[in-house]
Each structure stands twice: as structure tokens, then as C-alpha cells.
Design a protein around this nucleic acid. Structure first.
Lengths: 265, 265
DNA sequence: TGACCTGTGAAAATCCGGTTACCGGAGCCG
DNA sequence: CGGCTCCGGTAACCGGATTTTCACAGGTCA
């Protein structure tokens, strides 16, 4: 069972003293970080907490608020595990909740151990992707992306990236060679669904490009794929020389010719 | 594309006639593909079924076989959603099952609708996380369709397709060999019903043909089926030789009823 | 041959991303 | 506590890329 990195971050939106208390004890015992919230919390605050899962008691809110809230949370935070927990419920309610995006629905009273096991199950499912690709210092082109410093360097010189810029860079770099759609980038960096018409990604791409260029002219790192998103792939600015150094054989390869910075027809 | 791809593939390992029967009815009504298995099935057979989820009644097997089986299934098939379903169970059993890798644990009697909602929830999560196994680079003729790049290549050269063009190509290629009606193509690529008289598909087919031809003369990929639609099938331009290599084994063909017009050539 | 399709070319209408300017909030400093 | 600077985020403008729409020419089928 060594899979689940020991410590999960969980938030409870509940008011059932007894339930919360015993659960909290267990959580502490297991070394999970947790936080008790009394009621609705704005989505961006939830994002800021960097939670793995949220346990929500629907009864802390009147139904006409609870359902929409559940829907918004599930819809906007695709990376968050959501476990609904109620005293009683009908089949219809459970089905509705699950269809709205909840990952599990537990009926109280319920043993804390089972609640935890279900949270684990939910998180495990979503984690598989997050396959933590060790933030080992990553070197691409003449750029060095250091996750432990939240910075990128070239020959020891810092790119002076802000937090967002760095996260964006890292998200791009982690995808090594494949195109990532804007929405996906937004999801990975900002943590929730991108609103229609949001241009944040573009603007930050630009900021990033400027800083990278200033630091490492002679290389192009970020390629635009019209109508799709961006692709990170270090490429000597010239373009005549073919082979970029360390080429992940399967993927990008010399396919770097892809329609981005090319003058085209 | 598919968010809640209407059709899921599920297998049930159960012997509870009544439960299975009512559930099966619902599954049929919802259009899910399902299969009833009487007992343990070798893992590779499960793999071969290309399931989205497995519903397992632990009681079809003696405990000393059931637990190890559950563990193996969960451990070896990370892409499969596993929902355990039992008549009765203790907290300890449920916790054990969930920790072993089960995604959910339902206690009978349970409403079929809820079982389905839970299966959906499990698969939904699973999908998001397993989003990795992208469309493996698909190779047809001398063409290489790379989903992770939204591009098609020939010998590393990009076809410089736009998003729509690429999606069209992919839609066609995915149907490997069978004819797709215009309306169907439109639905898959554009996402909604094609308006009467809309020629978009034709226009894009042409653009695609041009780009593919420029990249890979010597091959014909897109064939017109008069009055019906198009068929994707790489064919050396020569034309005299009929069937290139292996015959298309099992037609994945879902609804593409058309197929009858083949002889045309 | 006539009624229908599909292939073509291009113009017209949209969509998109690059850029810039500007705003409000957070944190820092004196 | 005010003034400043840094940052993230939004709104707008603009030119270029992409999609759609049209009008016809060329083919196919009965």
C-alpha cells in the first residue's frame, strides 16, 4: 500500500461536530493535512489550498445552494476529488450528486476509516495521471529549469520568472514535445477550468517568451499551434541545422518543423 | 470530443440473478455494452474485452480467492474501473477492498441507477487521469498521424494541417477502411448536426487531399463514395494492385451502416 | 440527357493570437 | 499609515490565419 504518498490534503465542509471530530482524529493520526470549513468557500480559495480532496456535507447548505455549489466545484476543479457525505439521502439524490461530478457519496453514520479509504480511492484514481515526474532539474536547449528554485537559468543566469511564469514554463516543459491545448495549460497552471475568452495564457506566454529570449536568444522554446495551443521544444533559432541535441526518440524528434514559426507558403 | 461518451463497456462478475437482470436491463436501456461473467476470468481476457469498468460481486468466490483476485485485477489493470458489489459487508472488508484498489464498494440491495451513476463516476475519474495514453501514433500508408501533435507527418515532414483538417483526417482514419457519411463526419468533427446544403466537409476534404498529396504523392488516402461520403484507405497511387497488406480484420464499425458500396473501385 | 452530386477557386466572414495599456490587490519600505 | 513596486489579470486593437459560403464546372447515375 505504499502507493499513496502518506500525506493528503483534505478539506471538510461540515458542521456535524461528532463526525468531524472523530474523523479529524483519524486524519491526524494518518498524517493527513486537513482543514475544517464551516460553509461555502469561494472556488479560488479552494484552489489556493491545493487540496487532494474535499469532503462535503450537503446539509450545511440549503439544497438550492448546495447542488449548484457541488456542480461548480466539480466542474471547475477537475483535479479535486469530491466526496459527498450526508446523514440521509435518497437514491435520486445520490445519483444526482454523482452525475453532477461527485466522486463518491457516503451516508453517515460512517466509520472514519471507511471515509478515509474512500477518499484514498478517489484520490488514487485522479493521481495516476499526476504521475509525479520528479521535478529533477530539467535541462532543455541551453535552459535549465529548476523546480526546487521556481526558476529557470542559462549559464547560471536567472530568467527572473514570476511564480505564474515559472509554473507555465514547467507545465509546458513537462509535456516535452507534445502540443498542449490552452484549456489544458490553464487547468494545469491555474488549477481550474478556463473561462471562455480568457486570454491569460496568451499573455503569460508572451511574458515568458520575452524573458526566455532575453536570456537565451538564439533559441526558440515555445511554439504556437494555431487553434490549439502551445508546444515546448527547444530549437536553435537559425533553423538550418537539423538536430536539436537530446532528442526523445519517439516523440518530438526533428518534427520540429511543425507549422509555428515557419514563414509558410 | 467525448465527455460522457454515451457508451461504456462493462463486465459483471455476479450470480445474483435478480440483481443482474434488472441492472442489465438498465444498461441496455442506456446503451452500454455489457457482459455477464459467472466467475473468475483471467486477466488477459478482461484486457481483451476493452472494458471501462468491472462490477464484481465478491461472493461469487470464496474469500481466499476473491481478495487476491481483486488485488490482481486492480493492480494489473490500472485503466479499469473496479466496483465491488456485495450483499453484506463489514467496514473492515470495505476498507480492505478499497485499499486493495477497488474504486467503489456498493452494498446490495442497491438501485441499478445508483450503480450506474457510481460506475460513471469511477470511469469519469479514471478517464481524466489516464488521459495519458493518448492516441498512439497511428501509421497508415507512409503517413503518420500523431494525435499528440495535432499533425500528420511523412518521414518527419509535417503536413501543416490546420486544426479542422487534422480532426477531419483523424475522424476518417479512426474509421479505418469503412465509409463514413457526410453527416456523420460533420457530427464527429464539427460536433453538431450538419445543416442541409452545407459543403464544409467537401471543401475540407479537398484541402486535406491537397496537403496529403503534396506530402505523399504516390498514395491516395481519401476515397469518395458517391451519394454517401468518404472512406479513408491508403492505397498506392498505381491502382492496378488492389489490396495492399493485411485485410482490415474486425471492423470496429459501430453505426456506419453504409459499407455496402465497396465494389465501386 | 436530365437530375443530382462532388470538385474547384475565391471572396467574405470569422476566429485567433500577439501586443499593449491599464487596473486593482499584495507585499515592502520608510 | 501612505506611497511604491511587482504581479496577475482584463480589455481592446490589429493583422494574419482559418472557416464558410458561393457560384460554377465537371462527373455520376438512371
Amino acid at each position: 500500500m505504499g502507493l499513496t504518498a502518506g500525506t493528503l490534503r483534505v478539506a471538510l465542509i461540515d458542521r456535524d461536530g461528532a463526525f468531524v471530530k472523530t474523523l479529524a482524529n483519524r486524519l491526524d493520526a494518518a498524517g493527513w493535512q486537513h482543514r475544517l470549513l464551516g460553509g461555502i468557500v469561494p472556488l479560488d480559495e479552494l484552489v489556493a489550498m491545493k487540496l487532494n480532496a474535499l469532503v462535503l456535507d450537503m446539509s450545511v447548505l440549503p439544497p438550492e445552494e448546495a447542488w449548484p455549489y457541488l456542480e461548480r466545484v466539480c466542474g471547475m476543479l477537475p483535479g479535486l476529488g469530491v466526496v459527498v457525505c450526508t446523514n440521509e439521502s435518497t437514491v435520486a439524490q445520490r445519483v444526482r450528486g454523482l452525475r453532477l461530478g461527485a466522486d463518491d457519496w457516503i451516508t453517515k453514520p460512517s466509520h472514519p476509516e471507511e471515509v478515509m479509504a474512500r477518499i484514498e480511492a478517489v484520490v488514487r484514481r485522479r493521481r495516476r495521471s499526476t504521475a509525479e515526474p520528479e521535478r529533477g532539474p530539467l535541462v532543455v536547449g541551453e535552459l535549465e529549469v529548476r523546480g526546487d528554485q521556481y526558476q529557470a537559468f542559462v549559464a547560471g543566469r536567472s530568467a527572473d520568472l514570476t511564480r505564474r511564469e515559472f509554473e507555465l514554463l514547467q507545465a509546458l516543459a513537462d509535456a516535452q514535445g507534445s502540443v498542449i491545448e490552452r484549456g489544458e495549460i490553464y487547468r494545469r497552471v491555474w488549477g481550474y477550468e478556463m473561462a471562455h475568452g480568457d486570454r491569460s495564457v496568451d499573455v503569460f506566454i508572451r511574458k515568458l517568451r520575452i524573458k526566455l529570449e532575453r536570456l537565451s536568444p538564439g533559441w526558440t522554446y515555445i511554439h504556437t499551434h494555431f487553434g490549439i495551443g502551445y508546444r515546448f521544444d527547444p530549437e536553435p533559432v537559425d533553423g538550418s541545422a537539423a538536430e536539436p541535441p537530446a532528442g526523445p526518440p519517439a516523440a518530438a524528434g526533428q518534427g520540429s518543423a511543425v507549422a509555428a514559426v515557419e514563414p509558410a507558403r
